[in-house]
C-alpha cells in the first residue's frame, strides 16, 4: 500500500480550499442570517423578509418571470432541437453549434446589442418592461435550453417511434405518446438551466431599464445599505430554493445533459 501514499495527499490543498472558500462562506451567511447586529440569535430577518410586501412581491415576481421565460424558451427550443435531432437536416451537427455559440459571447455585450435593437424598434423601451424582460432573458438563456434538449432527443431510439407507427399510431400520437415522454429528462435539464438563472440574473433587467425588482438585486440593495443580516437571509432563502429544485429534479434529469455550464 505504501506506493499509493502520494496520490491521496494531492487532494489536501483542494479540500482546504473547499472548506475555506466554499463551505465557510455559506456558514458565515447562515450565521448572519440568523443573528442581529449584536450577534444574538434571532429569526427576525426571516420574519422581516416574509412581512415585507416589497420583498415578497419581488420573490413572486421573480418566480413568475422565471416561469414565463422558461416556458418561452421551451416553446422556441423544443421544435428547433427536435428538427435538428430527428428530421435529418443536412449538417445538423454543425448547425447545433451555431445555436449554442452565443453562450460563449459575454452576456453583457449581447444584452447591449439587444438593448440597441429594442430601442430602435420600440422607441422608449421602458414602455414595455415585462415584454422586454422576457425577450432579454429568453435571448440570453435560449442556447442553454436548446443544448440539453438536442442531447436527449438525438439519443432517442428511433425503433420505438417506428414500432408505434407500425402498430397504427398517427404521427401526432407517436409524438405525444413516445417522443415527448422520452424527452422529459432533457426538458427537465433545460428547465433547470433556465429557471434558476432567470430568477436571479438581475443584470439583464438592470441594463435594459434600471429595474431592480428581482431576487438577485434585492441582495445587492441590502448589501449597499450595509444590512448584511437581511442580505444573508435572502441569500439563504435563494440557496434553499435552488437546492430544493435541484434535489427534486436531479433524479429526472438527463445525466449527459446535466450541469448548467458543463458544455464543452
Amino acid at each position: 500500500m505504501k506506493k499509493h501514499f502520494s496520490r491521496r495527499y494531492l487532494g489536501i490543498p483542494y479540500m482546504i480550499f473547499l472548506i475555506f472558500f466554499v463551505i465557510a462562506p455559506v456558514l458565515v451567511i447562515l450565521y448572519y442570517a440568523l443573528t442581529n447586529g449584536k450577534g444574538q440569535f434571532t429569526l427576525s430577518n426571516l420574519f422581516g423578509f416574509f412581512s415585507s410586501g416589497y420583498a415578497i412581491g419581488t420573490l413572486v415576481y421573480s418566480i413568475f418571470i422565471a416561469f414565463i421565460v422558461t416556458l418561452v424558451c421551451l416553446i422556441l427550443a423544443y421544435p428547433a432541437a427536435y428538427i435538428l435531432a430527428k428530421e435529418k437536416v443536412r449538417k445538423s451537427s454543425v448547425l447545433i453549434i451555431l445555436f449554442i455559440t452565443p453562450m460563449w459571447i459575454n452576456f453583457t455585450l449581447r444584452i447591449t446589442a439587444l438593448k440597441e435593437v429594442l430601442t430602435a424598434l420600440e422607441g422608449n423601451i421602458s414602455y414595455y418592461p415585462f415584454l422586454n424582460t422576457v425577450i432579454g432573458m429568453t435571448y440570453d438563456f435560449l442556447p442553454f435550453m436548446i443544448l440539453p434538449l438536442y442531447t436527449t432527443i438525438s439519443k432517442l431510439d428511433d425503433t420505438l417511434s417506428e414500432a408505434a407507427e407500425d402498430l397504427g399510431a398517427g404521427s401526432a400520437k407517436v409524438f405525444l405518446k413516445v417522443t415527448l415522454p422520452l424527452s422529459v429528462p432533457g426538458i427537465i435539464s433545460g428547465i433547470m438551466m433556465v429557471f434558476l438563472p432567470a430568477m436571479t440574473n438581475y443584470v439583464i433587467l438592470d441594463m435594459l431599464y434600471n429595474s431592480t425588482f428581482i431576487m438577485g438585486s434585492l441582495i445587492g440593495s441590502y448589501f449597499a445599505a450595509y444590512d448584511w443580516h437581511s442580505g444573508s437571509m435572502i441569500s439563504i432563502i435563494l440557496l434553499v430554493i435552488i437546492f430544493a429544485v435541484n434535489i427534486i429534479t436531479d433524479r429526472f434529469a438527463d445525466d449527459d445533459a446535466k450541469g448548467r455550464r458543463a458544455v464543452l
Binding site: 473547499l18 434558476l196 430568477m199
Partner: peptide, 30 residues
C-alpha cells in the same frame, strides 16, 4: 472523503452566482 469533496464541489455549480459572490464577499471582506 470523496463524497465530501464531490458534494462541496457541487455547491458553487448549482448555487446562484449572486449568492456565491455575496457569501465570499461577506466572509473575506466583512
Amino acid at each position: 472523503t470523496k463524497m465530501f469533496a464531490d458534494s462541496a464541489n457541487q455547491i458553487p455549480v448549482v448555487n446562484a452566482d449572486v449568492v456565491t459572490g455575496f457569501s465570499i464577499c461577506i466572509f473575506l471582506i466583512v
